[in-house]
């Protein structure tokens, strides 16, 4: 499933990195502790978090994550969006909670390949 399909079906807002929407996504990881995400997320996953500060971009870039989705209506800080454009990491958002978003993504069939 591509990120563009997920954005459409889960009605996500795209804040930055639109160039990466064609990217295929394989599963996801939800977490707000950066070391936990660094340790356990995998390449091409969707990262669901409420952390909006610029340090999330390095984590996503290091782990080759497909995109970051901010939950609970949180919007990325301006430096975060600028970094994301530079590193070409798509940033999305939703008003749903992490629990609800993960559940809906899972129900779409967004599972690990």
């Amino acid at each position: 499933m591509t990120l563009a399909e997920i954005v459409k079906r889960l009605n996500l807002k795209v804040y930055a990195g639109e160039g990466g929407l064609a990217r295929p996504v394989s599963g996801g990881y939800a977490g707000d502790l950066l070391s936990d995400v660094i340790a356990h997320s995998r390449k091409d996953q969707l990262w669901i978090t409420l952390q909006i500060h610029p340090n999330v971009i390095a984590v996503a870039a290091l782990k080759d994550l497909a995109a970051i989705v901010f939950v609970n209506g949180r919007e990325p800080a301006p430096e975060t969006a600028a970094q994301a454009e530079k590193e070409r990491i798509p940033l999305c958002g939703t008003t749903l909670s992490a629990y609800e978003l993960a559940g809906r993504a899972y129900a779409l069939g967004l599972l690990e390949k």
Partner: peptide
């Protein structure tokens, strides 16, 4: 609060 300090650095 920023998500650091998970206490996983050295073990990671």
């Amino acid at each position: 609060e920023l998500g650091f300090g998970a206490g996983m650095g050295l073990s990671n």
